[in-house]
Nucleic acid binder design. Structure first.
Length: 751
DNA sequence: GTGTCGTCCTTTTTT
DNA sequence: AGGACGACAC
C-alpha cells in the first residue's frame, strides 16, 4: 500500500505530527495520498472508519475517494463521513433538525431556486429592482453567509448596504416561512449548531479524531471555522491543497486559509509533493516559470522523471475564426496519427469563445463535447417534476408551488396568484395555507390543485419512490403536456430517466422497496450520531437532487474532442491540450485587472491550464476577435512573455502581428495576413483596420504609446469599434487601466 | 395563455 | 452577435 509511494508521498501518508499541511502540486498524486492516508490510519489502528471525517468540494471527488479506499481496504464505507461540505452539513442538520431550528422536511434550494425566491421577495416587498438587482442581493446574501454573518452581524456603513441587510433579513424570514435553506445556509446552520449546542459539538469532536480536507485552497472563511470547531476537541487535521491552483476567489475561496492553517495548526509540518507524474519537462518548466511570477505563494517547484518531451507550440492567427480553423486542422492531423479524440482538449478562458471553435469543428465533421451546459437535475422538466415531489414533502415551499401551480396550465392565472400572494402576505403564511381564503373561480381552481398535491402526498405513503414519480408525472399532467409538445420527446425521455435515477438511488441507499414518503426509522439506536437519519426515501432523494446536480456534460459515450473552460478543466488531464485566446484582455481577462490580486489569480488559472497537458501543449492567440458584436484587437498575453523562450516553439512568426512591446518605427501593414502558411487573406476592410483605427485624422494602434492630459502616459492594450465610436483600452503607468472613447478623449501620440 | 417584440447583458461556478 | 428574459398585444 505504502511501498509504492515516493518518499514525499510516504512522508505525508505516515506523518506522525498532530496536524499536517500537504502542498500537492498538479499531477503529484494528491488523491492517492489522501486516500492512502485514510487507509493507513485505519490499518494501523489509529482510527476507525467511524472516527474519520473526510471533506471534499465535489461529489465526484468524494465518490472517487470512497472507491479508492474500498479498493485498498475491505471495509464497509456506509456510515462513514466522507463527502462534500454541503452534503455533510445536510447530514448533520437532518440528524439534529430540532436543535438547528429546522423542520424535519426542510428543502434545499439550488442557486436558481434561490434567485427565483429573491426575485419574488423583491417584487412582493415593492423593492426597486434597479437599485437592488436580485443577482446583487443573492451575491450579498451568500457573501455574508460565507463570512459567517447573519443580518445583525453585517457591517452596514452606508444607506445602500443597510437596505441590503434589511432585504437579507426579509429573505431569511421568507426561507423560514417556507422551510427552505440555500447552500450557504447549510453550512452556516451547521456551524451555528456546533457552536451553540455543547452536547452536539462535543459528540462530533469526540467522534472525529482525524479530519482530512481536500482542495484546501478552495475553502472559504466559514468552512475554515467549521473545520476548526470540529477539530476543537483535539482531532488531527490533515489538509491537502495547492495554493497555485486556487482559482475560485470570486466565489469566496480564500487562498490565505492555507497559510493560516500552517500557522494555526501545521506549524511547520508541511510536506511538498513536487514530483509530477503527468507532464513532460517543457510543459512543466513552462508552468513553473509562469507561476514564479506570483508574489504570494507558499512556494513549490514541479519536476518530472519523464524527460523534456516536446516544446510548447505557440501559434498566432489574424482572427478568432482562423485560430479555430488552425486548431481544427491540427486536431485532424493528431487524429490521423492515431490519437483518441477524447484525449484532446480545447480550453478557453470564457464560454463565449466556444462558439467559433464549435463552428469550425462542426463544419469539419469532428465530434466534440462541450462541458458546462445544463446538468440533469437542472433541466426544466426535471425541475418541474421535482417541484411536485417537494410539495408532497413540504407544501409550504412557495418556490416549488409557484413553479408548478399552473404548469401544466390549469386555469390559474396571474390575477388569482396575485390574490393568493396578497392573502398569504397579510396572514404571514405560505401560499398553500392561503388557498382556502381565495374566493371565486380562481379559489376553486387553487383548491383543486391543493387537493391534487394532498392526494399525491397520500400516494407517497404506499408507493415506492420510482412508482411515486411515475404517478406524479402522470397525474400532474406533465406526461400529457410533453406528449402534446412536438419537441417534448426528449423531455419525456428525461422524465423516464428520473424514474431510473430514483430506482438506482433506492438501491444504493438500501431502502429496498420502502414507501417513498415514510420516514425510514424515526428514532434510531443512537439518534445523536445521525447514523439513522430518519429521512424518508423521498426526502433523501430530494436532497440528493439538490446537492448533486448530475453530470456536467452533453452526452457521454462517443469519442469526442473535449471543449471546456479552464475552470472546468481543473482536476482533469489530456494528452493534447490547446489553450486558446492567449491575449491581453481575455487571458488575463481585463475584468480581473480591476480586482486586487486579480492578475495573480489569472496567472494561477493559466498555470492550471498548462498543467492539464501530458504530452503536447499549444498556446494559440488571435489578433482580432468578435466580441459583443464588435471586432476587437489585442496584444498577446503577458503570460506568453513569462515563459522562457527555450520552452516555446513559435509556429508563426513571433515578431509580426500582436506583440507586447510598443511599436517603434514603421510597421508594415498586412504582414500578418500575407505571411505564407496562414492560408487566408483577410478581406480588405478588415485589413485596413486590423492594426488600428482611424478617428478623424488620427490613427491609433494596439501597442502604441499615448499621453493623456489627466492620466499621463500609457499603452493601448486593445481597440474596439470604428470611427468616432472607437474605444481603446489603455494601460496607464500611474492611473491603471482605462477605457476611453477615442472620439472624445484628448490623446497625443508619444514618440 | 400564447406568441412576438424589444431590451439587456456578456469571466470564471460547485454545492 | 446572440441568447435570455420581460413586457406587451392578441
Amino acid at each position: 500500500m505504502i511501498a509504492s509511494l515516493n518518499p514525499q508521498q510516504q512522508a505525508a501518508v505516515t506523518s506522525a505530527s498532530k496536524h499536517a499541511l500537504v502542498l500537492a502540486g498538479a499531477g503529484s498524486g494528491k488523491t492517492r495520498v489522501l486516500t492512502t492516508r485514510m487507509a493507513w490510519l485505519i490499518q494501523t489502528g489509529q482510527a476507525t472508519p467511524f472516527g474519520l471525517l473526510a471533506v471534499t468540494f465535489t461529489n465526484k471527488s468524494a465518490k472517487e475517494m470512497l472507491t479508492r479506499l474500498t479498493s485498498m481496504l475491505p471495509i464497509n464505507v456506509r456510515g462513514m463521513w466522507v463527502g462534500t461540505f454541503h452534503g455533510l452539513c445536510n447530514r448533520m442538520l437532518r440528524a439534529h433538525h430540532r436543535d438547528a431550528g429546522l423542520p424535519q422536511t426542510f428543502q434545499i434550494m439550488d442557486s436558481a431556486d434561490q434567485l427565483a425566491s429573491i426575485k419574488r421577495l423583491i417584487k412582493a416587498a415593492g423593492i426597486d429592482d434597479e437599485k437592488y438587482p436580485p443577482r446583487d442581493v443573492q451575491r450579498f446574501v451568500n457573501g455574508a453567509k460565507e463570512e459567517g454573518e447573519r443580518p445583525g452581524d453585517v457591517d452596514a456603513w452606508d444607506a445602500h448596504r443597510r437596505r441590503m441587510v434589511e432585504i437579507y433579513q426579509l429573505y431569511q424570514d421568507q426561507c423560514e416561512r417556507e422551510s427552505v435553506v440555500d447552500f450557504a445556509e447549510l453550512l452556516l446552520r451547521s456551524y451555528e449548531l456546533l457552536q451553540r449546542n455543547a452536547p452536539v459539538r462535543e459528540h462530533y469532536q469526540r467522534r472525529f479524531q482525524h479530519i482530512l480536507v481536500d482542495e484546501f485552497q478552495d475553502t472559504n472563511r466559514l468552512q475554515y471555522r467549521w473545520l476548526t470547531l470540529l477539530a476543537g476537541g483535539g482531532a488531527s487535521m490533515f489538509a491537502v491543497g495547492d495554493d497555485d491552483q486556487s482559482i475560485y476567489a470570486f466565489r469566496g475561496a480564500r487562498v490565505g486559509n492555507m497559510a493560516e492553517f500552517e500557522r494555526d495548526f501545521a506549524q511547520g509540518n508541511v510536506v511538498r509533493l513536487e514530483q509530477n507524474y503527468r507532464s513532460y519537462g517543457h510543459i512543466l518548466d513552462s508552468a513553473n516559470a509562469l507561476i514564479a511570477h506570483n508574489a504570494s505563494r507558499l512556494g513549490k517547484n514541479l519536476w518530472t522523471e519523464q524527460g523534456e518531451g516536446e516544446m510548447v507550440r505557440v501559434v498566432e492567427q489574424p482572427s478568432d475564426m482562423l485560430e479555430a480553423q488552425w486548431i481544427v486542422d491540427e486536431i485532424k492531423s493528431s487524429i490521423d496519427e492515431g490519437r483518441m479524440r477524447s484525449e484532446i482538449a480545447v480550453l478557453y478562458r470564457s464560454n463565449a469563445q466556444s462558439r467559433v471553435i464549435e463552428h469550425a469543428l462542426f463544419s469539419s465533421g469532428i465530434p466534440y463535447k462541450v462541458y458546462g451546459g445544463l446538468r440533469f437535475f437542472e433541466r426544466q422538466e426535471i425541475k418541474h417534476a421535482l417541484a411536485y415531489l417537494r410539495l408532497l414533502d413540504n407544501p409550504h415551499d412557495d418556490t416549488s408551488w409557484l413553479r408548478v401551480v399552473n404548469f401544466p396550465t390549469r386555469g390559474i392565472g396571474a390575477r388569482t396568484l396575485e390574490q393568493l400572494g396578497d392573502i398569504a402576505r397579510e396572514q404571514n403564511v405560505s401560499l398553500f395555507r392561503a388557498v382556502a381564503h381565495v374566493p371565486g373561480k380562481g379559489g376553486a381552481n387553487l383548491a383543486r390543485f391543493a387537493q391534487l398535491i394532498q392526494h399525491m402526498a397520500h400516494e407517497a405513503q404506499v408507493l415506492t419512490l420510482p412508482e411515486l414519480i411515475e404517478h406524479v408525472v402522470h397525474h400532474s399532467g406533465l406526461l400529457e403536456h410533453y406528449k402534446a409538445d412536438r419537441e417534448g420527446a426528449d423531455r419525456l425521455e428525461n422524465l423516464q430517466e428520473l424514474v431510473n435515477a430514483a430506482t438506482v438511488f433506492m438501491h444504493e441507499e438500501r431502502y429496498d422497496d420502502a414507501p417513498a414518503g415514510r420516514a425510514h426509522d424515526e428514532s434510531g439506536p443512537d439518534s445523536i450520531t445521525g447514523e439513522i437519519v430518519g429521512m424518508s426515501p423521498l426526502a433523501a432523494f430530494l436532497s440528493h437532487a439538490s446537492l448533486e446536480a448530475g453530470d456536467n456534460q452533453a452526452q457521454a459515450g462517443q469519442d469526442a474532442i473535449q471543449l471546456m473552460t479552464v475552470h472546468a478543466a481543473k482536476g482533469l488531464e489530456f494528452d493534447v491540450v490547446f489553450i486558446t485566446g492567449v491575449e491581453e484582455g481575455l487571458f488575463p481577462h481585463e475584468n480581473s485587472l480591476l480586482e486586487s490580486a486579480g492578475i495573480e489569480e489569472e496567472r494561477r488559472l493559466m498555470y492550471v491550464a498548462i498543467t492539464r497537458a501530458r504530452e503536447r501543449l499549444y498556446l494559440t492567440l488571435a489578433q482580432s476577435r468578435m466580441l459583443h458584436g464588435q471586432t476587437r484587437y489585442a496584444m498577446r498575453s503577458r503570460f506568453l512573455d513569462e515563459i522562457p523562450e527555450q520552452h516555446l516553439k513559435w509556429l508563426t512568426s513571433k515578431e509580426a502581428g500582436a506583440r507586447r512591446e510598443p511599436w517603434s518605427g514603421a510597421f508594415r501593414r498586412g504582414d500578418a495576413y500575407n505571411r505564407p502558411g496562414t492560408g487566408t487573406v483577410a478581406p480588405r476592410a478588415a485589413r485596413s483596420t486590423a492594426l488600428g483605427v482611424t478617428v478623424g485624422d488620427r490613427h491609433f494602434r494596439v501597442g502604441q504609446r499615448v499621453r493623456h492630459a489627466k492620466f499621463g502616459e500609457g499603452t493601448i492594450l486593445n481597440l474596439s469599434g470604428a470611427g468616432q465610436d472607437a474605444q481603446a483600452r489603455i494601460q496607464f503607468a500611474d492611473a491603471g487601466q482605462k477605457t476611453l472613447a477615442l472620439g472624445v478623449a484628448k490623446l497625443d501620440a508619444v514618440a
